[in-house]
């Protein structure tokens, strides 16, 4: 059994896990179950990263996504109450689901059709010369070199972004001194009462 075969087997297995998890995310009514399905998807993607020789990203995927983001989401779910299951059976927005399905099918279908039609070379650009992947240097070292040379400014800006996000999260989540309840809205899709254009206001 060659490496290609192994890779193919791993890919198929992980693809099933990923798609199953993704399907679960949008299928389960309980957000906790959705979150757990998301974990499956993220693990699957991490294995696929490994499959593509991106060991560092696989590790980060597991640590950051499953270890931080999903936990954070679960934390918030628990904070707000577990049983906030939303009513999936009824769709208040007319045609929302149909159009969403068309969009989803269209995006996937067009990409698949494109890949199928192009067939041969999926990429036509020049192969990388400066930041080429080599087997001699460890993956993490390669990423580190590029990250701290070519992309150093972007890195610094993302650092600033993270800082801002943290501050923003603190501000948003802090318990306000005076809570103004939002005006009660009925969630039904009643059209706003049309304002009759005043016929008296014609300009003579």
């Amino acid at each position: 059994m060659g490496t290609d075969t192994v890779e193919a087997v791993v890919f198929v297995a992980c693809a099933l896990i990923v798609l199953g998890g993704a399907f679960g995310v949008i299928w389960f009514r309980n957000p906790v179950q959705s979150a757990l399905s998301l974990v499956a998807t993220l693990f699957g993607v991490a294995v696929l990263f490994l499959n593509m020789n991106a060991q560092f990203l696989a590790a980060v995927q597991v640590i950051v996504y499953t270890g931080a983001i999903v936990v954070l989401i679960l934390f918030v779910i628990m904070l707000l109450g577990v049983d906030t299951a939303d009513d999936i059976d009824a769709e208040p927005l007319v045609g929302q689901r149909v159009i969403a399905l068309v969009i989803a099918a269209g995006v996937a279908g067009l990409v698949i059709a494109g890949v199928t039609i192009v067939g041969g070379d999926l990429v036509s650009g020049a192969r990388a010369a400066t930041a080429a992947i080599t087997d001699d240097v460890p993956n993490i070292e390669q990423i580190g070199r590029v990250l701290f040379t070519d992309y150093v400014y972007a890195l610094e800006i993302t650092a600033v972004l993270l800082t801002i996000a943290v501050v923003a999260a603190v501000v948003m989540a802090r318990k306000p001194t005076e809570v103004e309840p939002l005006p009660q809205e009925s969630s039904s899709m009643e059209p706003p009462e049309p304002v009759e254009p005043e016929a008296e206001e014609v300009f003579d």
């Binding site: 927005l93 159009i99 969009i103």
Partner: peptide
């Protein structure tokens, strides 16, 4: 409805695609 806005983005993306 935020989801309506998102739907509009989706339609636009699909057209561009």
């Amino acid at each position: 409805y935020v989801r309506r806005y998102a739907l509009a983005i989706g339609v636009g993306s699909l057209l561009m695609l």
